[in-house]
């Protein structure tokens, strides 16, 4: 029954199967490492990162070229007007904050907070006094800039910001300050409701460039002389 031949055969068979299984297992472990979801995910993400970085670099290059071309064609005043570059110069900083007064009785609460209309009045006043560049909470005010109510915030260049607002304006500091502080002016009328407006003149302040794409879909420029 216990012949040596049989024993040997069975051991050989078992070992063969065992070796086979080891190899298969080894093989599939090696392969499955690549396909593990985690590895896949990292692979995918790093791939995407690389691609995005490449895109970013390409776009940066494009911007460099684009602005270089544009600025060479544009006059200095046009650059300031369009907000292409940051500008610096003397001016004022106006900070506008909500009222800290307590509402009285049946007063409308809305009267005590800063509204887009108040901001528009201030901007308008500053422009009338000869402000050359204006920004609201770091958003450059250009020709297409909107100032509108967006819930409890005010949206400027489609960027929402909440009070206190910091308005920077470059121009004659004295004239700008006076335009706001004059009798019956903005500060006085808004002051009634307790809205706090601080004006400080600065010898030197910087206003950032307009940081959104200038993409005109409908308006096409007409060459001079073509006008009808």
């Amino acid at each position: 029954m216990l012949s040596l031949k049989h024993t040997r055969l069975s051991i050989v068979l078992a070992c063969f199967i065992l070796g086979f299984m080891i190899a298969v297992q080894f093989h599939s472990t090696q392969n499955s490492l690549k396909y593990l979801t985690q590895y896949q995910r990292t692979e995918e993400l790093s791939q995407r990162l690389l691609q995005t970085e490449r895109e970013r670099d390409a776009l940066k290059e494009q911007i460099k070229n684009g602005t270089a071309v544009q600025t060479t064609n544009l006059t200095d005043s046009a650059i300031v007007e369009a907000g292409i570059s940051a500008v610096e110069g003397p001016g004022i900083i106006v900070t506008v904050a909500d009222s800290s007064k307590k509402t009285m009785g049946d007063d409308n609460v809305n009267l005590y907070v800063v509204h887009d209309e108040d901001m528009l009045r201030i901007i308008n006043e500053l422009r009338a006094a000869g402000a050359e560049a204006i920004s609201i909470n770091g958003q450059r005010v250009v020709a297409t800039t909107e100032i509108r109510c967006a819930g409890p915030t005010v949206s400027v260049n489609n960027e929402r910001s909440a009070p206190p607002f910091e308005i920077k304006a470059i121009g004659d500091p004295k004239a700008l300050e006076n335009s706001l502080k004059m009798r019956g002016g903005v500060i006085e009328t808004l002051g009634v409701w307790g809205i706090k407006i601080d004006v400080s003149t600065k010898e030197q302040l910087t206003i950032p460039a307009y940081n959104h794409a200038n993409d005109f879909k409908y308006a096409k420029s007409v060459e001079k002389g073509e006008e009808k």
């Binding site: 050989v12 068979l13 070992c15 199967i17 065992l18 070796g19 080891i22």
Partner: peptide, 8 residues
């Protein structure tokens, strides 16, 4: 046989 099995 173990080695052969592994190879196979």
């Amino acid at each position: 046989s173990l080695v052969i099995g592994a190879l196979v």
